[in-house]
């Protein structure tokens, strides 16, 4: 919003949609349907507490603990809930593993379903029509635009999220990371590598 440095005679008027949201909030609060303190808590959680670091922790643990990984691939929902990551919308979490033969990539063609507890709020491009339409139609081309080129021998599988099922990609552990502990490994796990539009960082 443009904001000049000269003195405003009155408070700066928020944009029109912001006023519409304020109106809804006021009405719902007056009716006791929502609590303003709960709104602040939700925003704080999504802005500061939930993000790709959660998913990265899960991935690093799977790279170092075979039993954990087996359980994660079997049924991720209770496994990540044990770590404190559970869906506030009651969704089911599915982890799909990248292998030399198969690369996985996640999209939501309907809207923008996303594993919030593990990755936070999706980036703008994930919500764009372009990604949502093209990820299914031409995944390799989309991957190339993200700088990911896969060997010809690797197939690409695209997983379409729904309100009930959210996917997380378990990327392959980079080579040369045998000596790293879980914490150091989790620093290599990028958000995009867990959506499947990127690969983990390689240790310097």
């Amino acid at each position: 919003m443009p904001h000049d440095s000269h003195d405003h005679p009155h408070a700066l008027l928020p944009p029109e949609p912001a006023l519409r949201v304020k109106a809804l909030e006021t009405i719902l609060t007056r009716k006791g349907l929502i609590d303003p303190a709960a709104l602040d808590e939700i925003i704080d959680t999504y802005q500061n507490k939930i993000g790709p670091q959660n998913g990265a922790r899960v991935v690093a643990k799977a790279w170092t603990d075979p039993d954990f990984k087996a359980a994660l691939l079997e049924d991720a929902t209770p496994v990540v809930a044990d770590l404190g990551y559970y869906g506030r919308q009651g969704e089911h979490m599915v982890v799909v593993e990248n292998t030399p033969e198969q690369h996985n990539m996640v999209v939501c063609t309907l809207c923008s379903c996303y594993p919030w507890p593990l990755l936070g709020i999706p980036p703008g491009w994930y919500k764009s029509d372009a990604y949502r339409a093209r990820a299914v139609r031409e995944p390799r081309k989309v991957l190339a635009e993200f700088g990911v080129s896969l060997p010809e021998t690797s197939s690409v599988r695209v997983w379409d999220s729904t309100a009930e099922v959210r996917y997380l990609v378990l990327p392959m552990r980079p080579e040369g990371t045998e000596a790293l502990d879980e914490e150091a490994l989790s620093a290599l796990v990028t958000r995009d590598s867990m959506i499947g539009t990127g690969l983990p960082k390689v240790p310097a």
Partner: peptide, 26 residues
Amino acid sequence: VFAEPWHAQVFAVTVALNEAGRFAWP
């Protein structure tokens, strides 16, 4: 995470209503 404050507000209102049982997420 949210480019505009109102994006966060409308998101939070919706999540709060869902958590209060006003509608199911699907």
